[in-house]
């Protein structure tokens, strides 16, 4: 029985790290730019298709190493351009938050079906980064899951550290808290917005590559990822990186234990009930601030 609980606990950790990976980009962008990116899941898939294109038809030398290396400039440029061309022109309107949501909703439609028309409606699979398992006593783990666990947590923690301890990070936070004030003290607000968006797009791209190689590249999968990421950010508190991290693991554990004890069919309703109750009591989520 104890062994079983440990096993489920590990499933929870794996779920949690996958969720953390999904949510990190969303919460960062929202925290700084207050732009809610509905096309989030589609960027996730862009990561998957990016890796697929390089690895399968182009059979790039260096495998995943090259993919990650090339992903950094690629996603930076995509994110930067997206912010400059599509989002920052909207910022001058007073209802720009709503406009951003609508624009990105349209964008996600465009991107999802763009993938479908380019890559076809069927799912694609990527080769694993690491194959193989690790055995500790009775418990067997995928090396892949361990990699995702380490990368997603360290990624988030690093990011939190940069935000809180470096000059650039503080500038980003200053813009997040008071854009006008930040500009007065000489922080290039527009650049910070675009750069944050670009950096978060890199994180999303990396997340997409990691997750798509664990599961699949699914042209219709973006809505699912959007919704999961959204649940986690809402639960953890919009814009709070640490909140998202907690939320990811709480929900991951909840999913594993409810699925194990009551059955998988009750997982979704349990998760969403927890979210609704939390929002009713603490509308800003676990760690959210005004």
């Amino acid at each position: 029985m104890l062994l079983e609980i440990i096993d489920v606990f590990i499933s929870g950790l794996i779920n949690g790290s996958v969720y953390a990976l999904m949510a990190v980009g969303l919460t960062l962008v929202y925290g700084v730019t207050k732009a809610f990116n509905f096309a989030y899941g589609s960027f996730y898939n862009l990561g998957g298709y990016f890796a697929w294109t390089l690895l399968i038809p182009l059979t790039i030398i260096g495998g995943y190493f090259s993919v990650f290396f090339m992903a950094i400039p690629f996603f930076f440029i995509v994110g930067y351009l997206l912010e400059k061309v599509l989002i920052s022109p909207l910022r001058k309107y007073d209802d720009w938050e709503m406009k951003v949501m609508m624009l990105t909703l349209g964008l996600s439609l465009f991107m999802d079906f763009g993938y479908q028309s380019i890559f076809g409606p069927r799912i694609k699979s990527l080769p694993g980064i690491i194959e193989g398992t690790v055995q500790i006593g009775e418990i067997v783990l995928f090396q892949q899951d361990i990699v995702i666990f380490i990368l997603s947590i360290s990624g988030m923690l690093c990011f939190g550290w940069v935000l809180n301890n470096t000059r650039t990070g503080m500038a980003v936070q200053a813009v997040a808290q008071n854009p006008a004030g930040a500009q007065i003290v000489g922080i290039p607000k527009d650049f910070i917005f675009a750069a944050t968006f670009a950096i978060s797009t890199i994180m999303v791209g990396f997340g997409g590559i990691l997750l798509c190689q664990k599961n699949f590249v699914d042209p219709m999968g973006s809505t699912d990822i959007m919704i999961k990421a959204w649940v986690i950010t809402a639960f953890g508190g919009m814009g709070s990186i640490r909140g998202s991290l907690y939320a990811a693991f709480i929900l991951g554990m909840l999913e594993a234990f409810v699925g194990w004890y009551f059955g998988m069919i009750h997982v979704q309703i349990a998760t969403l009930t927890l979210l609704l109750v939390t929002l009713a009591i603490r509308p800003r989520g676990l760690m959210g601030r005004e």
């Binding site: 599509l86 406009k99 349209g106 465009f110 999802d112 079906f113």
Partner: peptide, 20 residues
Amino acid sequence: GMYRPLIMGAIVVVLVLFLR
């Protein structure tokens, strides 16, 4: 077929940007 949602999405993006 699948170009329908693609075009609809593009229309939304353009409209939000240019026809406020």
